[in-house]
């Protein structure tokens, strides 16, 4: 039986555009009702962000380059977290999303231990907010309680909202065109000041991210393009493509001669 998949959501992160500003981190925190990471939480190593900017230094002192890598849930095609859940709280849905069902989760943390990218987080404490921030909680996202696992959802609440809005206003199914016209995207993508993050449908031929995935799948391992996926050699088949940073020193050099 051929299962028709309408959407397969994916993301492309252009590391050449990423400035490491942490805008996506803050946007995600606000959109998804993440608790405030206080100093206490950091000291306990219990602070978490659904999308984090990993920072690497390259080179020796005067010639140091900072490299940034925004890491969110990779929504793997072969997700290591899924088969280990004893209560089926995490599963792969038909739109290529790795879903965490909060009210099913019993907090075994098997998935966290099995996640290759360390993007699943456990609520060790009841999340709290300062009183003045309680009215900014997003009503479209559950406020998770203590004792359950949570992770990036590709802002599934925004995708659902987009589907309903498009069906109501235009009587069509959600596609790339209507999605772009109505400006629907995950919070991190919306917040990115340099448009380093791109979100779209891998299955849609006309989607702006489709080409990157096409290229990656066609020339696996021998691609000339900048696209790669982190830790793809272990076979997790992630839905997030990173575009290599173009070395600026070389660029300037060649430009001055050209």
């Amino acid at each position: 039986m051929v299962i028709k998949i309408e959407h397969k959501w994916g993301m492309v992160v252009d590391l050449d555009k990423c400035t490491g500003c942490n805008g996506c981190v803050v946007a995600c925190q606000a959109e998804n009702n993440l608790p405030i990471n206080t100093k206490d939480l950091f000291m306990q190593k219990r602070a978490f962000e659904w999308i984090r900017i990993e920072r690497y230094w390259e080179g020796e002192f005067p010639n140091v380059k900072a490299r940034y890598l925004p890491v969110m849930c990779q929504h793997c095609g072969n997700a290591p977290c899924e088969p280990v859940c004893p209560v089926y709280a995490t599963y792969h849905n038909d739109q290529g999303l790795n879903v965490q069902v909060y009210n099913r989760c019993v907090g075994t943390r098997y998935c966290i231990n099995n996640c290759t990218y360390q993007v699943r987080f456990f609520n060790f404490w009841e999340p709290t907010w300062p009183e003045r921030l309680q009215n900014q909680l997003n009503p479209d996202v559950t406020v998770r309680t203590r004792g359950i696992t949570e992770k990036c959802t590709f802002c599934v609440q925004r995708i659902r909202r987009a589907e309903i809005t498009v069906e109501r206003r235009e009587r069509t199914k959600l596609n790339d065109k209507t999605m772009a016209a109505r400006n629907f995207m995950p919070a991190c993508v919306q917040a990115c000041p340099t448009n380093a993050l791109m979100f779209g449908d891998q299955n849609n031929q006309e989607d702006k991210i489709h080409g990157y995935f096409e290229e990656l799948h066609n020339h696996e391992g021998h691609s000339d393009s900048r696209g790669y996926r982190i830790l793809e050699e272990i076979g997790t088949d992630p839905s997030v493509i990173y575009l290599k940073k173009v070395d600026q020193f070389k660029m300037e050099h060649s430009e001055s001669h050209g």
Binding site: N93, D94, Y102, T153
Partner: peptide, 10 residues
Amino acid sequence: VPTDCTICHK
């Protein structure tokens, strides 16, 4: 109608 968890659960 779809019965995927994320249709209703947020």
